[in-house]
Simulated assay, not measured.
Amino acid sequence: MTTSAQPNEHLVNHFTRKLECETDASDVHADQEAGRRFLLIDSRGDAAWNQARVVGATHLPTAQIAQRAPAEIPVDMPVVTYCWGPGCNGATRAALEFAKLGYRVKEMIGGFEYWAREGLPVENDHGRIPHATDPLTAPLDATTCDCT
């Protein structure tokens, strides 16, 4: 007789909560392309923003969120934060600041690094910056990784 495994409620709850708080570059780009309503926040400083950023992002450094967000961003606007990459917790800090203010917020895991490595559009003040997709981080001949 075989028995079926029962869901581990603790793990189901953990991963459900994680998906409520996190997204990734591919999903953010898909949401942009679909015209979904949200604001993508680059929480890095001026030098990083000026060097390159996600096309369509808004610059709001973490230290300025508490002061500027209530006046500039409607509280019912969903927010996604990003910083440099997985070795930086700046996006987490920015997401925390938005959460404290009552915003529905997610952190874009992988940050700007994985956005760029996946070949997604980046720009600076002079326009789009052409760059190649890193074959170790994204499929070269497909639009998604099919991991949904």
Score class of each variant (00 low, 15 high):
D125A: 15
A71M: 11
A57K: 05
G110C: 06
V80C: 02
E123T: 14
S26C: 08
G90H: 03
L96K: 11
N8K: 06
Q6K: 15
D27Q: 13
E33A: 10
T133D: 05
R93Y: 09
S26I: 13
C21R: 13
C88K: 01
W115M: 07
C88W: 04
A69C: 02
H10D: 03
L101S: 03
A30W: 09
T2S: 12
E113C: 03
T58P: 02
L11P: 05
C147Q: 12
F98W: 07
F15R: 05
M108P: 05
G102H: 05
N8V: 09
N50M: 13
I65Y: 05
A116P: 01
T144H: 12
I109E: 05
R104Q: 07
F98N: 04
K18Q: 08
V122D: 00
R17L: 10
Q51P: 00
A138I: 07
V28E: 01
Y82A: 07
P130R: 10
D125R: 15
A94H: 07
Q67Y: 08
T2A: 12
T16C: 00
I73S: 01
Q32F: 15
M1K: 09
L120S: 10
Q32C: 12
F38V: 07
P74Q: 04
W49E: 05
A132E: 12
E97F: 03
P130N: 04
V105Q: 00
V28P: 02
R37W: 08
D46Q: 13
W115S: 03
A95C: 03
W84D: 08
R117Q: 11
T23Y: 09
L11Y: 15
G56L: 04
V105W: 03
